[in-house]
């Protein structure tokens, strides 16, 4: 186990009942690396990143995040979740709390940061995602793009070492996608370790160090974006790419 890898998956298998969703996944992510995972729906790409903070349980293999192995042990799980931020397709903001309260809740109650300190850092991150003026509104009063940027800021408030993005733009109207992607690009440029499940190929080309293509629960192909898009090796990858580029 070398320290340069922040996330390591070794021979990970997962079943939903009889259904074999993940088949022998091996993946090592270096500190500062940006990885994009793509693939057709049902290929297991969301499941993979949801295993990385134990929202899903794997049945076989080893997942080590920042030196902590994810087993059923609650202490380990909580340790990992403090270090790993996650952004969801449906934002999952807490609708009964204001934007600012959404951002300060976890720092105050998980990391025991004082309220004033948490608010100061929350405002800093709201400025970074360019919506400080919405701090006292409720999530239901914001547009989808704004909500997703709040969700990103909420994760950043925990100072995570890794950010997981689970199709962060799939639930957004077209004109709102770019405001979210802009924030993600900036985050990547600042050196954040990121693992993104996304269909935004332009984003992948621009920021990814590595693109991983999954199909039917397996990693089919992985490569640098240039080579991945220009010269895919596997037949299934070629087919997938031709389908999404047609439009």
């Amino acid at each position: 186990m070398t320290a340069e890898y922040i996330i390591e998956l070794k021979g990970v298998h997962k079943w939903y009942g009889e259904f074999h969703v993940l088949k022998n996944i091996n993946l090592s992510v270096k500190k500062g690396e940006r990885i994009v995972i793509c693939g057709p729906s049902g290929s297991g790409k969301s499941t993979v990143i949801r295993c990385m903070n134990y929202l899903e349980e794997h049945q076989q293999g080893q997942i080590v995040v920042d030196g902590t192995e994810l087993t059923g042990d609650v202490k380990h799980i909580e340790q990992v979740r403090k270090e790993v931020g996650m952004v969801f397709q449906d934002f999952n903001l807490f609708p009964h709390l204001t934007v600012l309260e959404n951002l300060t809740l976890a720092p105050v109650w998980v990391k025991n940061v004082s309220k004033s300190e948490a608010e100061a850092s929350a405002m800093k991150y709201l400025e970074r995602v360019k919506i400080p003026e919405q701090a006292y509104k409720y999530p239901g009063q914001l547009s989808g793009g704004q909500q997703q940027r709040v969700a990103i800021a909420r994760s950043l408030c925990m100072n995570p070492k890794v950010m997981l993005f689970d199709e962060p733009t799939s639930a957004l109207d077209p004109e709102m996608i770019s405001e979210v992607l802009d924030v993600m690009v900036e985050l990547a440029e600042d050196g954040m370790t990121m693992i993104c499940v996304t269909h935004e190929m332009a984003f992948a080309k621009r920021v990814a160090d590595r693109v991983i293509f999954m199909d039917a629960g397996e990693i089919v192909e992985e490569n640098e974006p240039q080579a991945f898009f220009d010269n895919p090796q596997n037949e299934r990858t070629k087919q997938f790419l031709s389908q999404i580029i047609q439009h």
Binding site: R81, M86, F94, L105, A151, R154, S155, M158
Partner: peptide
């Protein structure tokens, strides 16, 4: 899930 991913 959002609460869990924040470590609550």
């Amino acid at each position: 899930e959002a609460a869990a991913s924040l470590g609550l």
